[in-house]
Design a protein around this nucleic acid. Structure first.
Lengths: 155, 155
DNA sequence: GGTGAAAGTTTTTCTCT
DNA sequence: AGAGAAAAACTTTCACC
């Protein structure tokens, strides 16, 4: 676990909230001048505390009207079976997230699709026939009330 | 839905993948010079196609070892009850995502916590007592096999 | 680990096509 | 709409504390 001081945490909070803030503005917000601020950011990137930066795009404006959560149970929970399923999911662009869970459900997937028809197509031709799948339960997202990036950060 | 040409889509793909790429580099990658590239990016931000930029932080290095998915059912599905629950979730920093679903489960939540103990504390003192909650089923994330930002983009 | 100034890039505006 | 040049701002390095 990274050893971070108060300034690092403020800096990370700012970058999580506004990833394209300039270094001078960031330095100002955390109470530093630009050079040490930049050094800290580079060090945090180096350490992997900052894994990357991503634009947050409006899925619906890009033609992805449907977000679905799928709860998947496998026939076998052997590590090789789990890996095989994960590798398969990695190949499917519609699958944005694949989390292995404890309990009855082995995986939860977040899937985006253009419309219900293309989702049904994906479900029957790609997901359900995937290796080792025992059952798939899907739920359509009606609306997303909250979608905060990453982790809670002190204000 | 936004009216985008091939260049816009490439540009969005690049920014989704690497949100802090410089405008000159971005322009180069999509085959433009800097000024028109910047104009396009600003227009996409204006239209809300680009909603923001966020640093992707390593939760475990920040002391959040636990990610949990919670499936919540409410006692009433009246719009006012749904809103009240959503407003409540908006106040809880541990709750990173709150999606309303169709079917048996009314909401799925993504929750992060420092450890199992603080998660149990959150569950019993914050989530289960929230207004109108009928049942909460939680599953711990064992590992995250895939976590791609946003939407599929053509390469 | 932070500061201030200087050099090198990048962003941003303007004008032209 | 895109290109090239110019001005302003930002990033990055360096010498110093």
């Amino acid at each position: 676990m990274a050893n971070l001081d108060e300034i690092d945490r403020k800096l990370l909070a700012e970058l999580q909230h506004e990833g394209r803030v300039t270094n001078v503005e960031l330095a100002h917000r955390v109470g530093l001048t630009a050079p040490p601020c930049l050094r800290r950011v580079r060090a945090l990137e180096e350490q992997g505390v900052i894994r990357g930066y991503h634009a947050d795009l409006d899925a619906s404006q890009l033609g992805f009207a449907i977000t679905v959560f799928a709860m998947v149970s496998l026939k076998s929970q052997a590590e090789s079976a789990l890996r095989e399923f994960e590798d398969h999911m990695a190949q499917l662009p519609e699958v944005r997230e694949c989390h292995m869970l404890n309990g009855e459900i082995d995986f939860i997937l977040k899937i985006v699709s253009h419309d219900l028809q293309s989702f049904q197509e994906f479900l029957t031709s790609k997901l359900t026939p995937a290796p080792n799948v025992a059952s798939v339960k899907t739920s359509l997202t009606i609306r997303t009330a909250k979608h905060e990036p990453g982790v809670p950060m002190p204000k």
